[in-house]
Structures are given as structure tokens and as C-alpha cells.
Amino acid sequence: MDAQDTFDLTTGRGLMACPRCDAMHVEAELNSGETLRCIRCGGVLAKPRGGAFSQLIALAFTSMVLMMGAIFFPFLEISRMGIGNATSLFGVAMAFADGVLLPLVLAVMAMIVGLPVLRSFLLVYTLTPLAQGRAPYRHAATAFRWSEELRPWSMAEIFVIGTAVALVKVAGLATVHLGPAFWAFCALILVNLASRGFMCQTTIWDAIEDGSLPTDGREMAGGVARGE
């Protein structure tokens, strides 16, 4: 068999299992722009994009800058009968700060600010050396795994929809003005969407494993389920 030396059924070298259905695939090289789907469940296994690492780093930096703006500029302002109140994101989280609701402050803060920033940081840490074709930093694998595990818990886009609902609810009570932080948050969502389009976990894992090999835009995993 021509592929005899490219994978090993006893150690698992050169093989990849679909995380959704466990079907095994032989690793193969993909061209930029190709999408590899699992032969069994049809889930995307890899979709390498040329220059994706640099794009992801740029987008991660963009989202950090926007998040800084989103934290410190006023988020929403309301006024009624001459009494006004402006709130920043910290103000939103601090709404729960009295008594038993304190843990919720930390959770809300983490979900809308902490985790997005942390994920951007972890991504930059993982990808910077890889984009330059150098060996990854220490613990890059752990950093990237955490970044992926925290993905469902960073909820910036949900927060923006929540803002829309809150605006409608408060509209009858007082006049509302949107602050710069609100628009920063909207931009943040677009940045996250763009980042998701470039993200291919398999490519990044392979790049981390291969160390200094320049694999940007290329893909080492792919292939087919096989019998013995």
C-alpha cells in the first residue's frame, strides 16, 4: 500500500479522528482554500486559508483595542426630567454588586470583557511565532486549548443583542443615547466573525506540533478513513 509509511495503526501517528463521530482519517496535505469534511458526519475537519495566522493576529489585536474603548467610554446614557445617568461596561457589571449577587458581577464581567480579551491574548501568544515560521513559545498548546475551550463562554455578541432588548424596555421610561462604547462593541462582533472565518484549529494544532516548519496556509491533516 502506498500509504504504508505515512501512518501507523498501533501508535496513531499520521492519523486524525473526527471529534464528532470518531471516524479516522489519514493526514494529508491540503491546499489553501480547500475544505476537508469528515467522510462520516460531514463536519468540517480542516479549512486552511493562506496567511490566516497573520490575519488572526491582526484581528486579535483589533479586538483588544476595541475592547479597551468599550470598557472606558460611556456605554449608554439616559435622562428623564433633568436627571441623567451614564454607564460604562463596569457600571453594567457592578449593577449586581450588592450582596448575594456579587458572584454574578464577576461572571458577567468575565463573559463580556475578561474572556474575549484573554482569548485574544492567548491567540496572539500562540500564533505570533508560528506566523513567523519559528518554534512556538512554551505552553503554546495549553494556551490555544484554553482559547478554544473558553470560546462558548465569551458572550460579547449576546451582550449586544441584550443591549437592544434593554433599549426597547427603557424607551418608555426615559430618553436613551448610545455611547461610543456601544459602537465599539458592535465593531467587535464583526471582528469576531471575520476571525472565525480564518480560524482552522487543525492547521494551528499541526503548526504547533510541527514546531518551526512553515505550515501557514498549508495543511497537514486530511484524508480518508481506511481499513487495515
Partner: peptide, 28 residues
């Protein structure tokens, strides 16, 4: 699943925002 958090965020935003003392206030 994560989208159910909307209501929690709405309450957080409203309670932070609507603190107009005598006129109106919202608490979680």
C-alpha cells in the same frame, strides 16, 4: 444554549442604567 444569557444581560444593563434616584430605578 449561550443565547439564553440575553435576559441576564438585559437585567444587568437596565439595573446599571436606570438609576435615576427618585424618578426611576431598577434593581436585579
Amino acid at each position: 444554549g449561550r443565547w439564553s444569557m440575553i435576559d441576564v444581560f438585559v437585567v444587568a444593563i437596565l439595573s446599571a442604567l436606570v438609576q435615576l434616584g427618585f424618578v426611576a430605578s431598577i434593581h436585579p
